[in-house]
Design a binder for these strands. Structure first.
Lengths: 174, 174
DNA sequence: GGCTCATATTTCACTGGTGAATTAAAAAGG
DNA sequence: CCTTTTTAATTCACCAGTGAAATATGAGCC
């Protein structure tokens, strides 16, 4: 038990039973949404598992990567919230965690004194350069057997789903 | 900002910049994994958003649905942990939450006195019957424009990714 | 210039989830 | 049998993330 395969089997069976009693249930779509939740969750577990030895969690890693790959190596909490889809509260915690480890520094912005600049340190850059390649093997294994065409299709479908979700949020104000 | 579309654009750009300096980065796969994380997360937010008025979170909803769709309407914490991929600790909390609302009841198992049976109540069934259909409209909208062939492809690719993840876990003991 | 409103960040209290230890009962092995 | 090991559920202490309020600065407007 506890493999994704088993969970997916249970899900298929459960939705089948549900749909017997509830014919208006959109079976395919329900299955796809469950698949997204289950597989997406497992991808995240996988990532956090390989991140753990480096004592980073997903959101800290993402924040650091954004700083690393940004042209001038710095940003502000507000921007980072947008890019990472994290709340401001959590970004304060992330900043604290990264500052404590010497991977980034905070400094007061001079144009706008409400703002704080967060910049990656030389130390932080070295850390990323060492840590990042350790993610590649498992990342590659995750998509073993995905040919050129599968990858293109998968990307297309995920982006299409993303568009729909954006349209859904528009309505609700979000 | 904060739309998935924008986040995805940033991601594409960031990975492009990364790959300039790091040619061994598996660009396609990195993008697909980021897409899974971003879109999967948003699907979950979407679900929890429509669940909120019913005062359920994702794991409580899933647990209740499993009980609802199980042949005899009951299970045990241990089984529910497997099916929902939740830890035992959290299943205790979920049980407490659902019991408090009168949607399920706990009872001692007679064959094995270590076990606890958790069963959905008539009240719980009525609750599901009322609540479940309110999820359909947004669920359908999520996959607007996904034709028969897109749905089949998407399902195939997600299941394939799930297989790979199971194989990855095997190695690590998980 | 001074008042009001908006924006950026942080603090605080809380929810949801996890790992380690605890309790209790079943199963296994002389 | 009786000891040891395994399994099931819970409790406890903690980590990650959120919403509401606090703080401080900038912007818009008579």
């Amino acid at each position: 038990m506890a493999t994704l395969g088993n969970c997916i089997g249970m899900m298929d069976e459960g939705i089948r039973r549900l749909s017997d009693a509830l014919p208006e249930l959109p079976v395919d779509k329900a299955k796809l949404s469950r698949l997204m939740l289950m597989v997406g969750g497992r991808v995240q577990e996988e990532l956090e598992h390989t991140l753990k030895p480096h004592r980073l969690n997903h959101s800290e890693f993402l924040t650091l990567m954004i700083l690393y790959s940004s042209p001038d190596g710095s940003s502000t909490p507000g921007e980072l919230c947008d890019y990472t889809s994290q709340g401001a509260t959590n970004m304060t915690r992330i900043g604290n965690a990264l500052v404590t480890r010497g991977l980034v520094v905070r400094s007061a912005s001079e144009e706008d004194r409400r703002r704080v600049r967060i910049g990656i340190t030389p130390n932080g850059r070295r850390f990323v350069q060492k840590m990042l390649p350790t993610l590649f093997p498992r990342l590659s294994a995750m998509f073993d057997g995905f040919g050129e065409s599968d990858r293109r299709q998968f990307g297309r479908l995920l982006r299409k789903l993303a568009d729909n979700l954006d349209r859904l949020d528009e309505g609700t104000g979000r």
